[in-house]
Amino acid sequence: MHFVTRITRRLAQFNSNFSHSIAMAQSTGTLNFEEVRAGLEKKSLIYMDVRNQSELQSDGKAVGSVNLPLPEIIEAFASSDVDFKNKYGFDKPDKSAPLVVGCFAGKRAAAAGEQLTSLGFNNIKVYPGSFSDWKSNGGPISKE
């Protein structure tokens, strides 16, 4: 009987984790190059690049994007508004701000979307193609 109980618990945990992953994917959604470009032009979204500073220096970044490296997200949003602005150079977005997260190819962007959702942000989109897609589509790039 103990074996059946363990299996039942593990199945319930798997179902819970699977449901959570599906809910995260549905709540974050995705945007493509044209949608991100248009949003940046209209200033109707914040495109947060979660790559490390060294990547931005070597490869550049999408014009109009802001940078907050993935390993710093939790700590950054726990800081005061003033400390956030001083460190990252842009105002700390509120929890309903239209945020789009990107990285180089999309993997870190998805992780950032999950972290931001867990912090209570409710208007998150992921740019799955991220910087590599931006560059291949001829999006404007600036170097820091």
Results as ranks from 00 to 15, higher is better:
S132I: 03
D133T: 11
G120N: 11
G129R: 04
K43L: 07
M24N: 15
S54W: 00
A62G: 05
E75S: 02
A25K: 12
L116N: 05
A112H: 12
Y47K: 12
Y88K: 10
C103A: 10
G60Q: 11
A76G: 02
S79H: 00
S118R: 10
L56F: 11
K43I: 13
A109D: 10
V63D: 08
G39D: 05
E114I: 00
A109V: 14
S58A: 09
L40H: 13
S79K: 05
F104R: 14
D94T: 12
A111D: 14
E41Y: 03
K43C: 10
G102H: 12
A105P: 00
A111K: 13
I46K: 04
G102D: 12
Q57S: 11
S65L: 10
A62C: 07
D49Y: 01
G102P: 12
I73K: 01
F77V: 12
L40C: 14
L116S: 06
S118A: 14
S44N: 11
P98W: 07
A110C: 13
D133R: 09
A112V: 07
A23E: 15
V82K: 02
L31E: 13
A111F: 01
S21Y: 14
Q115L: 08
S132R: 03
S54L: 11
A23V: 15
S19M: 12
S65D: 11
S80Q: 05
L56N: 12
D133Q: 07
T30P: 05
W134V: 06
F131R: 08
K125G: 13
A76K: 00
F18A: 15
V101F: 03
L99E: 02
S79P: 04
E114D: 14
V101Q: 01
A110M: 13
K95T: 10
K95P: 06
Q115D: 09
R37Y: 09
A78V: 04
N32E: 09
A78T: 07
E55T: 10
S132G: 01
N32Q: 14
P98M: 14
K42A: 09
L99T: 10
F121L: 07
S54K: 02
I73Q: 00
A78W: 00
P93S: 13
S79W: 03
A23T: 15
G129K: 01
F84V: 13
L116H: 04
D49M: 04
L119C: 11
I124C: 02
F84D: 08
D81I: 14
F90K: 15
A25I: 15
G89A: 10
V82A: 05
V36L: 06
D83A: 01
F77Y: 08
F33I: 07
A38Q: 15
G39S: 10
T30D: 05
S58H: 09
I73T: 10
I74R: 00
S44I: 06
A62L: 06
P71N: 06
A97V: 05
G106T: 09
R37A: 15
W134K: 09
A62Y: 02
S27E: 11
S130G: 10
E41M: 06
A76V: 01
P93R: 14
L68G: 09
G39R: 03
S27L: 02
K61P: 04
S130K: 09
